[in-house]
Amino acid sequence: MLSVDTLIILMINTASGGYLMWYRQKPSGEIEMICSESCLKSRYTVGTSDLPGVGFMTISNTLVTDSGSYIAVSKKKKTRAFLGTSYVNLAVTDHTPRIRLFYGSGIAKTHVFQCEVAGAGADLRGPYWEITELGHVRKMRGVGSEGIDADGRFTRWSMVTLGSDKSFSVTCLSSHNHTTETLRTGTINISQGASVCVFTYFLAPVACALLVLTVVLTVLSARRTRQRGLERDG
């Protein structure tokens, strides 16, 4: 895996006798302190430049989970007086993208599919669909959206709702902008009438059990009737 260091430079009041406190606001909204006069994590290094008004932070081996808003607060060492603040947004791209396909049943016998492509930034196009029905393949774009997930990954989504009285299969794809690489999910096959087969599969053992029970009860009733007849004759 490629190791990358990230340098964050901020313009901020770094007066003599002052120091910087660093915070990170996660994509989820949670705020954590990273550095006060010393850093809480060894991957972070902070300092100020010889140039006035410049503070910096270096993040070693930057991870997707380092995404967020980085906030620097400048204070006086002795008085703790507030001198100024500045921030920058950092989005770390995951270079090992992931594509996933979700399926559920909609209303009025429709089928709902959602595709998710997480990572790889702008290098991958938004997901699209291949629907195969009766040997014919058609491509389509669904209802799409994009955003940053809770871990800081740039994520795209696409959703389609399909209804058909014929069997069909669905695959989701996402192609690379600069190469021939294509991400592809597994294929979901929708067979019309499958639910009836499944119902029959579970119903058959019950029907057999009822049939056996009926035969046993009939035999027992016949024996009892015959025994009563013999007792009467005796």
Rank of each mutant, 00 (worst) to 15 (best):
I12P: 03
T62H: 03
G53T: 05
I107T: 12
S36A: 14
T58W: 07
S49K: 09
R228G: 15
T14K: 01
L90C: 00
F199D: 09
Q114L: 10
L7H: 05
V137C: 03
W157Y: 10
S191D: 11
G229M: 08
T58A: 04
Y128A: 08
G104V: 06
G234F: 11
S49D: 15
V4Y: 03
G84A: 09
R226E: 13
G163M: 11
V54R: 13
P52Q: 09
A81S: 15
R125D: 12
G193F: 05
S49A: 13
C39A: 02
Y70C: 01
W157A: 00
T180D: 13
T155L: 01
T200W: 15
D50M: 11
S67F: 07
D149A: 00
S86I: 04
L220D: 06
S3Y: 10
L83K: 08
T96D: 07
V216F: 02
G47S: 07
V64E: 06
F202L: 08
A72F: 06
S174I: 15
I8Q: 12
D233T: 15
M57F: 04
R228I: 13
R43A: 08
E181M: 07
F168H: 08
T200K: 07
L210E: 07
Q227N: 15
V215Q: 03
H111G: 00
V88M: 10
S3T: 14
C172P: 04
S195I: 14
K26F: 00
W22H: 09
T214C: 09
V206H: 04
L183H: 09
H111R: 14
Y201M: 12
A207S: 08
V143M: 13
D66V: 03
I107H: 00
A120L: 14
Y19H: 05
S74F: 01
H176S: 14
T179S: 15
S3D: 10
L63P: 00
G47W: 15
E30M: 07
P52I: 07
M57S: 06
S191K: 10
L203S: 08
M140E: 13
N13E: 06
L40M: 14
T45V: 10
L134S: 08
C172D: 11
C39M: 09
C197N: 14
A81N: 10
M1C: 04
G144M: 06
G29P: 11
S158H: 09
R223D: 12
H95F: 09
Y128H: 10
G186Y: 15
T225C: 04
G142E: 01
G135C: 08
R223N: 07
D151P: 00
Y87F: 13
E32M: 07
S42A: 13
R125M: 14
D233W: 11
G147D: 05
A207H: 00
R184W: 06
V112I: 15
L20H: 05
S164F: 05
T65G: 00
P97S: 02
E30F: 06
T93H: 01
S49P: 09
A194C: 03
V206A: 12
R156E: 07
Y19I: 03
G55L: 04
L134V: 05
W157C: 01
C39P: 07
T218H: 04
F168E: 01
S169R: 11
F82N: 11
K77C: 03
L2A: 01
T14Q: 01
G53F: 06
R43K: 13
R43Y: 11
T6F: 00
T185C: 05
D5H: 14
E130Y: 05
